[in-house]
Design a protein around this nucleic acid. Structure first.
Lengths: 210, 210
DNA sequence: CGGGAGATTGAGCCCCGTCAAAAACAGTGG
DNA sequence: CCACTGTTTTTGACGGGGCTCAATCTCCCG
């Protein structure tokens, strides 16, 4: 039911485009992707990792009927693109204008494993949210997580749309919207703008995480 | 709502017991755990990996109110215990009488990363099931997965209880039971015994995975 | 100011959870 | 082999949380 927002992903702004593998220098300028641009697709061969310099990325899979599950968001400073085998099992798209640095993967690098394990723990914790928490708890967990990843400030930027949030939390956009409204009415959050949340009662959010 | 099946996990049968870290030889006999015995607990320090020689293991987390999410089952031949940091974030328990071989982890070992990545892909694919599939699709995905991991035979052993299956699929035992009954009535599966499933129409299961 | 995508709100319904009872199963001991 | 007991599974009735469908509103950006 949930469709991609862009019928066709935009082309990357940077001339190198999708031919990321052709980049050679590790310290080159980051490649710039426009909002909605595809970074890699399911089925593509993969031999690189990607580091977000600025912006945000969504990792997702699709079912045949268009249902989408976003398995992770990646913000500035985070590394993604881990795969078992030599092809990508997921799609990666820039959510907003995003700078990506390609890391040519030395397969034996010692620091790869810790990053992969961090992704694993993240995914496993998200399983708990999707499997056993209701809509209110899911949105609370999401907001608390976003706040923590942005340094624990009260003001949180949400680069992604309600649609993205819904597909990440296994809900519909309507339900996400209703929960936002409810949290606002109860004074837990404020919504200065659509993509900005101010967390007023952080403790309430954490209490909801049981 | 979902409680642990054993009010208190049994003690391991093998004298080494939980002091797994004291084992030295890589090629030692596997440690035997009785059904329900704890292999490690959330919060324990970890420096080993574990390989299932025979039997089956569940990996799970608990919410404060007792809700449980099983993030993975591990069958004979599979390796588990990957963690970011030095403490376990999950519980691991033997489901039935299970032999476990402890692998002392050489942190730089080249073959660790592929196994960790396999766990990561498994977790991410399970996110799709929990986030975007209904009860019928979840049970079908589970049965197809179990069949594939047991060599693709028609006869599938289910070492885990309905309770475990429910907590893995984010459902209740009642719903799991109803779906089993429904698949049976539609001739997709047969249930020779409680813990044994014969898959009659494998294609139907796969069609349900969209 | 108008147009369009995204977000919010409302009404109704359905899948699945909850609660309860019956049935099947697994031990245990006689 | 069977009676007895506790656990697991199945089945039923019912209610509610979240989905569906549809209308309205808000925010951008020309």
């Amino acid at each position: 039911m949930t469709l991609l927002e862009s019928p066709r992903a935009f082309m990357p702004l940077h001339p190198q485009g999708n031919a990321l593998a052709s980049q050679s220098a590790q310290r080159s300028l980051p490649t710039l992707f426009a909002a909605g641009a595809e970074i890699y697709a399911q089925g593509e061969t993969c031999n690189c990792l990607y580091r977000v310099e600025f912006g945000a990325v969504r990792i997702y899979r699709l079912l045949a009927d268009g249902r989408r599950q976003i398995s992770a968001f990646h913000l500035a400073g985070e590394t993604f693109g881990f795969e078992a085998g030599d092809t990508h099992h997921f799609f990666a798209e820039a959510i907003v204008a995003t700078g990506i640095r390609v890391l040519r993967t030395a397969p034996g690098a010692a620091d790869l494993l810790p990053m992969a394990l961090k992704s694993l723990v993240r995914a496993q914790e998200h399983l708990l949210v999707l499997g056993r928490q209701n809509a209110l708890e899911r949105v609370s967990a999401f907001l608390a997580d976003m706040a923590e990843r942005q340094g624990g400030l009260r003001q949180v930027e949400l680069p992604m749309s309600r649609n993205d949030i819904a597909d990440y939390l296994g809900l519909t956009i309507e339900t996400v919207s209703r929960i936002f409204t409810r949290l606002k009415q109860e004074g837990v959050i404020r919504l200065p703008s659509l993509r900005r949340v101010e967390i007023v009662k952080l403790q309430v959010l954490h209490d909801l995480l049981a």
